[in-house]
Design a binder for these strands. Structure first.
Length: 264
DNA sequence: AACACGACCTGGTAGC
DNA sequence: TGCTACCAGGTCGTGT
């Protein structure tokens, strides 16, 4: 589920309920240290921030619940904190009985209490600019590309370079820009670098719209255009653009899907 | 610096 | 039906 667009959708949804609520109880089943129960209880949720794929629940008293959904996590509000599902890993009970639940079937997600100043400094130092922020300029991207000898796919997945892309949207960005995922960044033509920069932004913008729909956004009537997946998970199928068979290779221990015909 | 690999975990599914 | 093997949207630590 969660790359930047999905995480942003989760945050927007949470912002409808969470800010202003006091945490009256906290129960950790897994995915969080037991100390979270005590450090969260009694505090008020001031804001829900996001940095890359990291969710930051800002609590009163300079405490942040640093949350990462990893592969299969989800974070959402429920009307009654006692009625959480069986898959709940952390449940925050709020004033007026509502709740916030961290779910994750694989239990890889994490929610950890931290001093706000400390976690902010750590994340700022460890994450590159977000593609949907003004910091993601073409000049910056050109320079990063010029000095990187990483294969393009690994470059896009590297959160210290670009914060927020994951396996799906990295693959889709490369496909749209017609870039071979194995090609080293500093070996890409200037035109490909520029194209890739633009497609990263376009892919995330499109995906964000779809994610907001999927998470119960503006209208159930509007045509919920789901994000069109062109290559991810389509090994063996013909490419919509050139007809060549889409391949799956391994990079950095993950699957990369691409079209050997038009990604060069 | 850059990369491979295992660990962390559970669940779904294709194939036999 | 039931077993096995592999796959999964992420990150971190260790070793080369």
């Amino acid at each position: 589920m969660p790359e930047l667009p999905e995480v942003e959708a989760v945050c927007r949804k949470l912002r409808e309920r969470a800010p202003g609520s006091r945490i009256t109880s906290a129960k950790v089943f897994r995915c969080a240290p037991a100390t979270l129960e005590e450090s969260a209880r009694g505090r008020t949720i001031r804001a829900v921030d996001r940095l890359g794929k990291h969710i930051l629940l800002r609590l009163s008293g300079g405490v942040t619940l640093h949350t990462h959904l990893r592969m299969s996590g989800n974070l959402f509000a429920i009307p009654d904190h006692r009625l959480h599902g069986a898959g709940a890993r952390v449940v925050l009970g709020l004033s007026h009985g509502a709740g916030i639940v961290l779910e994750d079937p694989r239990a890889l997600a994490r929610m950890e209490p931290a001093e706000t100043e400390v976690i902010d400094r750590k994340l700022a130092a460890g994450l590159g600019p977000e593609p949907l922020s003004p910091a993601f300029t073409l000049d910056w991207f050109r320079e990063e590309s010029r000095v990187s000898r990483q294969p393009a796919k690994l470059f896009l997945m590297d959160q210290t370079r670009v914060a927020g892309l994951g396996n799906i949207y990295a693959a889709e960005s490369l496909y749209r820009a017609r870039v071979n995922p194995r090609k080293l960044m500093n070996a890409l033509s200037p035109a490909k670098v520029d194209s890739l920069h633009g497609e990263i932004v376009a892919v995330l913008r499109d995906a964000l719209q779809s994610a907001i729909f999927a998470y119960g956004g503006p209208g159930k009537f509007a045509e919920a255009e789901s994000f069109p997946i062109a290559v991810y998970g389509r090994e063996g199928e013909p490419c919509d653009r050139c007809g060549r068979v889409i391949r799956r290779i391994a990079q950095g221990g993950r699957s990369t899907y691409f079209c050997p015909g038009c990604q060069r």
